[in-house]
């Protein structure tokens, strides 16, 4: 049901994109107004989301420890998976965010002749890495459309990305990476029973959106061979807040742009906020130094319940305590 709904939503979006691309009167709306709105929603949305998270305190330090703690000097601490200091925690987060370390642990369980088996299962990790890094590099590569002069890292990335010099224009590695990565993620959502069962419409939709951005990008570069000079004029004019709509922009560009805008608007209200969210995850970004350094809960005094004090306890059990010779705080009322 989620899949069908996503496809349905996507078709509507595609129809809107085509209308925007081929009805010339709408180009101002789709080429200038929408990007401004999308960018604003994206930035404000993400900031608001992070502020909302940050407004809630972290009452307890609930690190998930995945390696040996620091304790005795003859026992070797696992500094990455069980950090004790801020620097070690930073390194843990670095590996988590840059290399998806936790996902790398993934295994696949199975049952065979009443016995459980566990196999390594790195595919999800591999394709996730390929997808995310391709996406990141593609975004960085796009800086050549947003900047004049183009910063030097852009041609550098482009050169590496086009290292194999296949095709003309050169086919970037990330073009293949993002497509293959997305198709894998989509295929496992559709064909893996386990993943299909847990998938919501909002799990398919982002895949469709990003895939259509990638495909329209590929079409522009390799098939329609779109002239990018007017495109860059448009982006630069938008960024300088003096928007001018150039003539001769290929309609496919408007479709591409529409999906980008849709993704930007959708981002802050969807699961895609896992991108900023990972930085705040309390099981990963806190040092496991609980016994060395007190963690403060700002609302600790909200707990009003009275604990049963020793005095109350002794009052209840004084007789039996005296009978077995336990020392008492108060030696009152002798029953004899």
């Amino acid at each position: 049901m989620g899949l069908l709904f996503s496809i349905f939503t996507f078709i509507i979006l595609l129809a809107i994109a085509f209308i925007g691309a081929y009805v010339e009167g709408l180009h101002y709306l789709f080429g200038i107004v929408l990007p401004y709105i999308a960018f604003a929603v994206f930035i404000i949305g993400i900031v608001v989301r992070i502020i909302k998270w940050a407004q809630s305190p972290v009452p307890f330090r609930i690190t998930t420890t995945c390696g040996q703690q620091r304790s005795l000097d003859f026992i070797k601490q696992n500094k990455i998976d069980n950090p004790f200091t801020g620097l070690q925690t930073f390194i843990r987060m670095f590996f988590e965010i840059i290399l998806f370390r936790s996902l790398f642990r993934n295994t696949k369980a199975g049952i065979k002749e009443n016995k459980l088996t566990y196999g390594a299962n790195k595919w999800l990790w591999l394709f996730s890495i390929v997808f995310h890094y391709s996406f990141l590099i593609i975004v960085l590569r796009h800086f050549r459309f947003f900047t004049e002069p183009v910063p030097s890292f852009v041609p550098f990335i482009q050169e590496i990305d086009g290292f194999f010099q296949i095709g003309l224009p050169i086919i970037y590695l990330t073009t293949i990476g993002i497509t293959v990565g997305l198709l894998y993620l989509l295929a496992r959502r559709i064909f893996d029973n386990q993943v299909r069962y847990i998938s919501l419409a909002s799990d398919y939709l982002p895949l469709f959106l990003i895939l259509s951005i990638a495909i329209t990008g590929i079409l522009m570069r390799h098939f329609f061979k779109v002239d990018l000079t007017p495109v860059k004029q448009l982006t630069l004019s938008i960024l300088s807040f003096q928007p001018i709509l150039p003539a001769d922009v290929n309609p496919i560009f408007y479709i591409h742009l529409f999906f980008v805008c849709t993704l930007l608007i959708y981002f802050p209200m969807s699961k895609l906020v896992h991108m900023p969210g990972i930085f705040l995850s309390p099981t990963r970004n806190l040092a496991n130094n609980n016994r060395a350094k007190r963690h403060i809960n700002p609302w600790n005094s909200d707990f009003k319940m009275h604990y049963h004090t020793y005095e109350e306890y002794e009052d209840e059990f004084r007789e039996v305590m005296r009978d077995v010779g336990l020392p008492l705080e108060k030696e009152e009322k002798n029953v004899d």
Partner: peptide
């Protein structure tokens, strides 16, 4: 309002399924 963990864990799951058979 009291637990950032809760708020975050409500929002960021992508249902990748890595936890499923754990």
């Amino acid at each position: 309002h009291k637990f950032r963990s809760l708020k975050l864990f409500m929002d960021i799951c992508v249902r990748c399924g890595a936890c499923a058979d754990k």
